Simulated assay, not measured.
Amino acid sequence: MADVQDSLFSDLPELPRPTEKAVDAPAPSPKKSRGATVKPVTPDAALLALAAELPSPLRLGTSSWSYPGWAGLVWDGDYAESVLSKSGLSALAQHPLLRTVSLDRNFYRALTASQYARYAAMVPDDFRFVVKAPSLVTDATVRDESGRGTQANPVFLSHEIALQEFVQPALDGLGHRIGALVFQLSPIPAHLLADQPMLIARIGAMLAAMPDLKPTAPDAVLAVEVRDPQLLCPAFADMLRSVGATFCMGLHAKMPPIEDQLPMLRALWPGPLVCRWNLHRRHGRFGYEDAEKLYGPFDKVLDPDPETRAALARVIAGTTGAGQNAFVTVSNNAEGCAPLTIASLAQDIVDRMSR
């Protein structure tokens, strides 16, 4: 096991930066469609062959799915965003590379068990969900509609709310299709970060109060994603290990690159990989809106990031090669088009495994 760990988490080699942006092969021309039933695009032989070479413990997926720009990549034609939001999941789950999805909407408003059950009924038996906890329990600040903080959140890190509004409904509705339940902590106010031992203890107390997921969902794991690099420390890793949770590697401009997050994975090894590639680093700490404007309609890669893809492929190959599960989701804001990023990442993983 030590040899695997050393191989997986040793220093990553520097990779050359491209001098020109990559040009993606054009997607097939989508058919026009106005129906309420979303049909998947027919995958070509090369895509099917690529999917067959990926390790079985790996589940790649997107962050949400209601994007009309994926016509010809995921959908067989043009569909309205409202139609995709309601009915697109079943088509997405038939894509050969997409075996998970991140339910990001739960961050904004907690889903009910019946809503989870509806999603579960739309996907194959071996599909797994990555679910973000509601901000009600993961944001220390109550915010108005513009996102501006108005007051301290009295139920921040409440184990009662976490169980009632998140973990139990997910268990009841998704059942064995849970992959990772992710507590993505919003940036922590300075006065709470100043007492790091107390903050870590509070996070640990919340996680320790959650029920064992394994009897219902054998692949499931609780994970914590942070937006404050100060929490990438041995005490945080020790706490996660003590409560049977793991670290969610967040690839985001507010966090260090992969290389600087690997010590957390090393400290928790052996264990599953949970990773959410959220935002290209060029956009800075508060760049979501800029990325949305630049990348829409999310039908092509506009900012290829081969360094991040290569580093992530190495971690995935090492993790799954040791028999551990990997749940990796990608946002459109990573490079411009999540399905195309995932296809490139899949090829990088296969290339890495063949060395």
Rank of each mutant, 00 (worst) to 15 (best):
residue 65 W to I: 07
residue 48 L to S: 13
residue 200 I to C: 01
residue 77 G to E: 07
residue 228 D to L: 00
residue 15 L to T: 11
residue 42 T to R: 12
residue 85 S to H: 09
residue 201 A to R: 14
residue 71 A to K: 03
residue 180 A to K: 05
residue 234 P to N: 14
residue 116 Y to V: 06
residue 269 W to E: 14
residue 293 K to I: 00
residue 66 S to D: 11
residue 179 G to W: 03
residue 23 V to S: 13
residue 283 H to S: 08
residue 332 N to D: 04
residue 170 A to H: 09
residue 118 R to V: 05
residue 205 A to H: 15
residue 131 V to D: 06
residue 151 Q to W: 01
residue 298 F to Q: 04
residue 41 V to L: 03
residue 103 L to G: 10
residue 131 V to F: 05
residue 71 A to G: 01
residue 74 V to Q: 12
residue 206 M to K: 14
residue 197 P to T: 13
residue 328 V to Q: 09
residue 98 L to E: 12
residue 196 Q to G: 10
residue 56 S to T: 10
residue 200 I to W: 08
residue 258 I to K: 10
residue 179 G to K: 07
residue 225 E to T: 09
residue 346 A to M: 02
residue 253 A to S: 15
residue 150 T to V: 15
residue 319 T to K: 10
residue 236 F to Q: 07
residue 301 V to S: 08
residue 91 A to D: 06
residue 76 D to Y: 11
residue 303 D to A: 06
residue 121 A to C: 00
residue 25 A to I: 03
residue 93 A to G: 14
residue 156 F to Q: 12
residue 180 A to G: 13
residue 147 G to Y: 07
residue 136 L to D: 13
residue 267 A to W: 01
residue 158 S to W: 04
residue 217 A to F: 02
residue 326 A to G: 12
residue 99 R to N: 12
residue 143 R to S: 14
residue 133 A to F: 10
residue 345 L to I: 05
residue 274 V to H: 05
residue 344 S to C: 09
residue 120 A to K: 10
residue 276 R to P: 09
residue 261 Q to K: 01
residue 62 T to H: 08
residue 63 S to H: 00
residue 276 R to S: 13
residue 138 T to P: 13
residue 342 I to M: 10
residue 80 A to F: 14
residue 184 Q to V: 01
residue 123 V to S: 13
residue 255 M to L: 14
residue 134 P to H: 15
residue 183 F to G: 08
residue 285 R to V: 15
residue 32 K to E: 10
residue 206 M to I: 06
residue 306 P to L: 10
residue 105 R to H: 13
residue 198 M to D: 12
residue 209 A to P: 10
residue 323 G to V: 11
residue 293 K to V: 00
residue 22 A to I: 09
residue 338 A to K: 02
residue 334 A to F: 15
residue 34 R to C: 06
residue 108 Y to H: 10
